[in-house]
Design a protein around this nucleic acid. Structure first.
Length: 951
RNA sequence: GCUCGGAUGGUGGAACUGGUAGACACGCAGGACUUAAAAUCCUGUUCGCCCUAAAGCGAGUGCGGGUUCGAUUCCCGCUCCGAGUACCA
């Protein structure tokens, strides 16, 4: 039979599903291996050809590991809560659950078409109550925990309560809110329940905090950062303002150091680790207190430590460059800083008010994006440099962010470019502090040279100055060394409908967890998916959305539920555990299952999740480990980023008439410059190798039925450009179409053949023929000219063994280093060689089938069965063992070069030693001719590589 | 701005630890088979010069330098492209 890919692929896909070929057990004598893909959000557009890239790579790896004797967990699921489904629901009234279900079914169909070896019995959907029950449960565990700095881990909150009861708050070292109070055990016991809860909330790993959101009054909704462009909503262009509201937060900052240290223990791409390091942003510096000079404090040249500092008359700044303290010429505090009111003098009041109202109009994003404009206002007050008593003005400016550090900076114009520009603009002094500094045109942040104008550190180097300054500050009680992190606690609430309800109700304005037995807290029905008229989240519309509880004493109580839902990242921060034991109803995963699978051995996904999903997942994993639920400190041992598949658009050129109107005539790419034309996108699916299919084009739309063309050599050539893959650019390619035409095995091979996995590249169907031809050629190895299956049981020749063992070694090496594109090339070489050798030896072909199986599972299953093996057993066969003996050579065709330029090749036995080779080469008549009598200075001979003659 | 990645024929890419640059494909050109098309097969294909051809010569991995017997690979400086990130004190 000819290679009937569609029949054969359908047959095997059905076989695998019916026989549950890829179902995996949570115990096995084989070693475990867990291969995970980043699960998709099931969007309405379906899968395009870029999505499966990573899945194909992970599938090849999984199948390879099975052949290598591992018990492989390779699951798939859906991250099915999300904004698009909700927006669609707002527009159409269709319940997001219905849209989501439809989309998932479509995705499943498309995925099944490609022949993945997923264990679908473990499928998860984050929007399914049986799944989000456990997202809610984990939220509860975090709520019931605090971070103990002494043991450096999260502990149950009861432990903290016990400590409070024993000895008050004095000996507690915790990562907590700034406003925790100090109390004795006695004082604790005397607190009301309410006060105790209020205090504990400051310690919990999930807690309430006031934070700002992008509020759009016209749309009546909160917007995500990327829904806001230039201060107005992306949809509609309505103004957006910053609104403060109480929000759930997660204390990820408690884990900042562990998240940083853990990076050194995992095998991830270095750029990605670097991104996380920068995001966490550990900086070692110092806190310095600047005394405020005000009329009633009367500081005149006196050193500040003589004064009694209070929070009202000191400004605390954080700096990573304490050494520059003598270069400080002003202080800048954030416009939101609490001291602004106190510091502003009557004369400056108007200036300050104006500036603050100006700032309010800008979103934090805008404030951060605008680095060019210098703006600020003077408060009228001055502060005193604690080390030299200098009187320096205090300004406010929006380049200082209230949320980072202390919300105040000491400005050193000579060392910091922003400070430099600010000083220039407002005519403030710029003080040189290092002898090698060049500050004529811009700030010089380098640390080289010796200090000048710097009092007691004059003449010292950077390394000497830092400890010296810190010591002095500590002596004066005007400052101390301090580690600061850039990372901020993660906001966990969303004013949305399509997400997990937060399992919390309120009583006396205090949050309480619902009973664990009441989980899952199922998302209620609402009439509309918009916020309520009073501005409450959509859940405010749900009827009867109250928590009722009967207390042990028999009193019934009704509390209102939290109305916000969890963010998109909640469900994806632990899903790899659910795959270990997806059906469990009494735990997020059984302890034994977690002990068996432990962690993910290989995780494949895009680098766009570098600072979101991949950081949150690590955080939850660590918290769950602290609480004793999981084993490993890090969830993903090895991570590979697959590159983005970009779109490749095709263009046609419409002729413009004299009046400037478009005609129905189209000019081929090479001729377009001779005419007046306008370019328009044409569907890439009716273009092949940039040549337009004219008939299909005419059929595509009625208006094109009578289109005319100006052709070049009888063809219409289209222009092309690399763009994002999107419907509007007509460059979306559906894998289903490729499979229909060439089969799933060809698609799999071609996606790999396209280039290195990590590299971003445009999708281009040009070239897929080559891969398709390869599979047909492979098929023909097993068949005669009439397509009768025929293999020989004869002993293969040395050349045949060599071809086989070359590919065995190559595929092993390539898969281990995730270089899938090169092994596809090698398969082609191997099949070409065997075709030339007219090889149809069973011994060779049977092993070749195994080696190719991970890449092209359908065709190999079919041939495996045709070879007489039990159908379906290929998945768990043994990968062939590489034998180097077959590759031993006794001769090598050495390139002979003169002064590094290759001139010729020479066959030389590998058994000869240096001297013999040199002699042989120099005696060769061709070499003599090239040398042309010139004296040989030196000879380089690298065995098995090269001979180089230096003259 | 900062960080990271990249730049190789007409195209996608290969060259893994410094050792024959352009593997493997696509495309293109020519040919075979065929009434024809498809499919298949064969030959050629980095560029330039010379040439009927064989052969030969020269240049060549973004640009300019350097290290080396030898550089796509290492070092220094630059240009361009892509991604991430955002005034982080």
């Amino acid at each position: 039979m000819d290679y009937q890919f569609r029949d054969l692929e359908n047959k095997w896909q059905k076989f695998w599903a019916e026989n549950q070929t890829f179902k995996v057990e949570n115990n096995s004598p084989k070693p475990k291996y867990y291969v995970l893909d980043m699960f998709p959000y099931p969007s309405g557009a379906g899968l395009h050809v870029g999505h499966p890239l990573g899945y194909i790579a992970s599938d090849i790896f999984s199948r390879y590991k099975r052949l290598k004797g591992f018990n492989v967990l390779h699951p798939m699921g859906y991250d099915s809560f999300g904004l698009p489904a909700e927006q669609y629901a707002i527009q159409t009234g269709q319940h997001p659950a219905i849209t989501t279900e439809t989309n998932i079914n479509r995705y499943r169909e498309q995925l099944d078409n490609i022949g993945f070896s997923f264990d679908w019995s473990r499928e998860v959907r984050t929007s399914d109550p049986s799944y989000y029950k456990w997202s809610q449960w984990i939220f509860m565990q975090l709520f019931n925990s605090w971070y103990n700095v002494v043991s450096d881990k999260a502990e149950p909150i009861e432990e903290l309560v016990r400590k409070f009861e024993e000895s008050g708050s004095a000996n507690i070292k915790a990562v907590a809110d700034d406003d925790i109070s100090v109390f004795s055990a006695e004082e604790w016991k005397q607190k009301t329940d309410e006060d105790k809860q209020r205090e504990l909330l400051k310690y919990r790993l999930t807690y309430l905090r006031e934070s700002t959101v992008n509020w759009c009054p016209a749309l009546g909704t909160v917007l995500a950062n990327d829904e806001v462009k230039d201060g107005v909503s992306e949809r509609g262009g309505y103004p957006v303002e910053q609104k403060k509201m109480m929000q759930w937060s997660m204390r990820i900052t408690a884990y900042a150091d562990r998240l940083l240290k853990g990076l050194d223990t995992i095998d991830w791409p270095e750029p990605l680790k670097e991104m996380q390091r920068n995001w966490i942003g550990k900086s070692i510096g110092a806190l310095i207190k600047f005394q405020v000079e005000s009329s009633n404090l009367k500081v005149k040249g006196e050193i500040a430590h003589n004064l009694q500092p209070t929070t009202h008359n000191t400004i605390e700044v954080f700096t990573t460059r304490v050494d520059t303290i003598f270069g400080v010429s002003f202080l800048v505090i954030a416009p939101e800083h609490e001291l602004v009111k106190v510091l502003t003098t009557d004369e400056q009041q108007d200036d300050i008010n104006n500036y603050i109202s100006l700032t309010k109009k800008k979103s934090e994003l805008d404030r951060m994006a605008d680095t060019k404009t210098v703006s600020g206002a003077f408060t009228g007050s001055y502060a005193i440099n604690p080390l030299n008593g200098a009187k320096i003005p205090v300004w406010i400016a929006d380049y200082v962010l209230a949320g980072y550090g202390t919300g105040a900076v000491m400005a050193v114009p000579s060392g910091d470019q922003r400070d430099y520009l600010f000083a220039q603009h407002f005519n403030l002094p710029i003080i040189q502090i290092l002898d090698s500094q060049n500050i004529e045109k811009e700030a010089d942040p380098t640390k080289e040279g010796k200090y000048v104008n710097s009092d007691f550190i004059n003449g010292l180097s950077y390394a000497e100055a830092v400890p010296s300054v810190i010591q002095k500050l500590e002596e004066l009680e005007a400052g101390k060394a301090k580690v600061n992190f850039r990372i901020r606690d993660a906001i966990f609430g969303r004013q949305r409908y399509w997400g997990e309800p937060v399992p919390v109700y309120f009583k006396d304005n205090l949050p309480h967890l619902i009973d664990e037995s009441d989980l899952p807290l199922v998302l209620p029905e609402v009439d509309k998916y918009l916020p309520t008229e009073s501005g409450e989240p959509p859940l405010g519309r749900a009827e009867g959305w109250h928590y009722s509880k009967v207390s042990p004493s028999g009193e019934s109580f009704v509390g209102s539920y939290e109305l916000s839902t969890m963010p998109g990242w909640a469900g994806s921060s632990w899903y790899w555990f659910r795959y270990m034991d997806a059906q469990n109803d009494s735990a997020f995963a059984d302890k034994k299952a977690i002990e068996y699978w432990k962690d993910v051995d290989l995780y494949i996904g895009g680098s766009e999740h570098a600072t979101g999903h991949l950081l949150y997942s690590r955080f939850w994993n660590k918290a769950l480990k602290d609480l004793g639920y999981v084993i490993e400190e890090e969830p993903f041992k090895k991570l590979i980023n697959q590159g983005m598949i970009q779109g490749r658009s095709n263009f046609m050129y419409r002729l413009i008439d004299e009046e400037g109107k478009g005609t129905n005539t189209f000019v081929s790419y090479g001729l377009k410059d001779q005419y007046k034309t306008t370019a328009l996108h044409v569907d890439v699916n009716i273009v092949e190798n940039d040549i337009l299919n004219l008939d299909k084009f005419k059929e595509s739309r009625e208006e094109y039925a009578n289109a005319e063309f100006i052709l070049e050599s009888g063809k219409y050539i289209c222009g092309h450009e690399v763009e994002k893959m999107s419907k509007s650019k007509f460059n979306v390619v559906n894998p289903d179409d490729i499979i229909e035409r060439y089969g799933a095995d060809t698609l799999r091979l071609y996606e790999m053949f396209l280039g290195p996995l990590e590299q971003s590249k445009p999708w281009n169907t040009n070239g897929i023929e080559g891969v398709f031809k390869f599979l047909r050629k492979f098929w023909k190895l097993f068949h005669d000219d009439q397509f009768n299956f025929i293999v020989s049981n004869d002993e293969p020749s040395k050349a045949e063994y060599k071809a086989l063992h070359k590919i065995i070694r190559k595929v092993e090496e390539d898969i281990e280093r995730f270089s899938f594109n090169t092994s596809v090339s090698s398969f082609m070489i191997c099949v070409n060689e065997l075709t030339d050798l007219k090889s149809n030896k069973r011994i060779i072909l049977q092993d070749l089938v195994k080696v190719l199986n991970p890449y092209a599972p359908h065709i190999t299953e079919e041939l495996w069965a045709l070879l007489g093996n039990e159908p379906g057993t290929l998945t768990y066969a043994d990968f062939p063992k590489f034998n180097p003996d077959y590759l031993v050579e006794n001769e090598f065709a050495y390139p002979v070069s003169i002064n590094g330029k290759t001139k010729m090749n020479l066959n030389i036995s590998l058994a000869l030693d240096n001297k013999e080779v040199e002699k042989l080469v120099l005696e060769n008549s061709d070499v003599q001719r090239y040398l042309d009598g010139k004296a040989v200075k030196k000879m380089i001979y690298v065995k098995g590589k090269i001979v180089n003659i230096v003259v």
